[in-house]
């Protein structure tokens, strides 16, 4: 366990040293604050809490931004070490390759956690000061889910990083993954639904299709219930689905665990 923590600490220190932590936190805080400022403005006559409105805006943004940041952080985790010429020395120490993957992943999750919690926290404080704490539960759930979504893409980025030789290749794959999960998948799904010509797709197929894309699982989890469901229009999908928050969380955790385990196996088998 000690090597894992050592590497995690190092990854975090590297993130602080090369300004990744600061820049991602600032980006998150700036965008969250902008949404909070716009989203909480027209309150008064609406029956929903200001924080609920912010949740809807912020979650829609998170779906694009957090996977991108996560992939940026993790796609070159291993290739960077190889290109810098520090990988062989690192692996000559008494530690296993899965420990290296686990340590780097852990450090990156902490970086993302810091950026998300601090960034969103700034926005939350802004809204709470103006409009009160009503709706904070949904906001807390959304923040936690955002970190979990980021963790999924950190794991996918890590798998990319151990599978290729060069950072530039890894970057290309990362962009492809991002496009696939954030845009193409939903377009494809929509196309299939339209092609069905209104014939109902079996519920379990739809559920499976949503759970198979981490961003859809995230969207359903944060926007499917409560006041935000009504605002976002995701309530309809959620009500027809048998996916509970527990199942969706499970799907996202699996989305972290499977690529991470695959990354450990691939990395362990590689001849360096």
């Amino acid at each position: 366990m000690r090597p894992v923590l050592t590497i995690a600490r190092r990854e975090l220190a590297e993130g602080i040293r090369n300004r990744w932590v600061v820049s991602t936190t600032v980006v998150m805080a700036a965008l969250a604050s902008a949404i909070a400022a716009l989203g909480s403005a027209p309150t008064g006559s609406t029956a929903t809490a200001a924080l609920d409105v912010v949740v809807v805006g912020l979650a829609s943004l998170t779906i694009f931004l957090v996977p991108l940041i996560a992939l940026l952080i993790s796609h070159d985790a291993i290739t960077r070490e190889a290109e810098r010429g520090t990988l062989l020395l690192l692996l000559s120490h008494p530690l296993s390759r899965p420990q290296v993957v686990a340590g780097k992943y852990l450090g990156q999750v902490v970086i993302l956690l810091l950026a998300t919690v601090v960034g969103f926290g700034v926005a939350a404080v802004f809204v709470v000061l103006r409009n009160g704490v009503e709706g904070w539960q949904a906001f807390a759930v959304m923040t936690a889910a955002s970190v979990l979504l980021g963790a999924v893409f950190l794991a996918l980025g890590m798998l990319t990083s151990v599978s290729v030789q060069e950072s530039s290749t890894a970057a290309g794959i990362a962009i492809g993954l991002w496009l696939l999960f954030v845009a193409l998948y939903d377009m494809g799904l929509l196309a299939v639904l339209v092609a069905q010509g209104g014939h109902a797709v079996p519920g379990w197929v739809m559920d499976l299709a949503l759970a198979l894309n981490p961003t859809d699982a995230y969207r359903l989890m944060t926007l499917g219930e409560g006041a935000s469901a009504m605002l976002s229009g995701m309530g309809g999908v959620y009500d027809n689905s048998t996916l509970t928050p527990g199942l969706l969380t499970g799907a996202l955790v699996l989305w972290c665990a499977v690529p991470l385990a695959a990354a450990m196996i691939v990395f362990s088998r590689r001849n360096l």
């Binding site: 590297e14 810098r84 020395l89 008494p94 296993s96 420990q99």
Partner: peptide, 21 residues
């Protein structure tokens, strides 16, 4: 096996370190 490498020292050819530390 990682344990085997506990009492092993290695100096790579033209060794590199992270420049920021």
């Amino acid at each position: 096996r990682p344990e085997t490498r506990r009492h092993l020292g290695y100096l790579p050819e033209s060794v590199q370190f992270h420049p920021g530390f």
